[in-house]
């Protein structure tokens, strides 16, 4: 049997940011079954679909850049995969793109260089930039006195939860707690 590999990019927007990584995994497993897509399963006493999620986005974080890879038993055009899956999930968890991968394509974990998170605060406040932990830089702030700030997480810090940065900013630098956090994009 053939093995056909796809990378799927999807959203995780309000209110589904309140779901955990495991909830999302289960949702995709069931969506694939509803869409009757012949996904390949692991062997063993508890067969699970061959999904691979490179990162677990923590509960609470909205995202426009969620990814996973999946192995199918038959070739399916990426546009068709996108269409069939999209009708099985809510709009806010919808698919951004699907691309077919070759066997030599490296998994996302190997090519990713950084993740951009945007923090939204209740109000603007005078920005006093603290010295951030290594690997995290302020990418942009759109206003002079900003209420929206983006951070780039690189290297080992990619494994950091943005909530860890929040607790650093709140305790070390007296920043207010953000209202929302959005995983904006990944950098490859």
């Amino acid at each position: 049997m053939g093995k056909f590999r796809y990378r799927i990019q999807y959203r995780k927007l309000v209110p589904f940011h309140l779901l955990s990584h495991l909830d999302i995994y289960r949702m995709w497993e069931r969506a694939f079954r509803r869409a009757r897509i012949p996904v390949l399963y692991s062997q063993g006493f508890n067969p699970r679909p061959l999904f691979s999620f490179p990162f677990a986005t923590p509960l609470g974080i909205e995202s426009k850049a969620e990814y996973f890879e999946v192995f199918c038993g038959e070739p399916i055009p990426p546009w068709e995969l996108k269409e069939r899956l999209s009708s099985e999930v809510p709009e806010e968890l919808g698919i951004e793109s699907v691309c077919a991968l070759a066997s030599f394509d490296l998994p996302l974990q190997k090519v990713i260089r950084g993740i951009v998170y945007t923090f939204f605060f209740q109000e603007s406040f005078p920005l006093e930039l603290p010295s951030l932990p290594e690997g995290i830089t302020v990418l942009e702030s759109r206003e002079e006195i900003p209420s929206v700030i983006s951070f780039l997480f690189e290297g080992k810090q990619m494994l950091w939860s943005p909530l860890k940065l929040v607790s650093f900013l709140v305790t070390e630098c007296c920043w207010p707690f953000p209202k929302r956090i959005l995983k904006e994009r990944i950098v490859v």
Binding site: P15, L19, S20, R30, R34, G60, R180
Partner: peptide, 25 residues
Amino acid sequence: VEQRLFSDLTLLSVERPGRYLGREW
């Protein structure tokens, strides 16, 4: 309620907020 509880980080402080969400298939 949708705006007050489910549109930001308000429910980050409660256990398993997904159980209050609704919107199931």
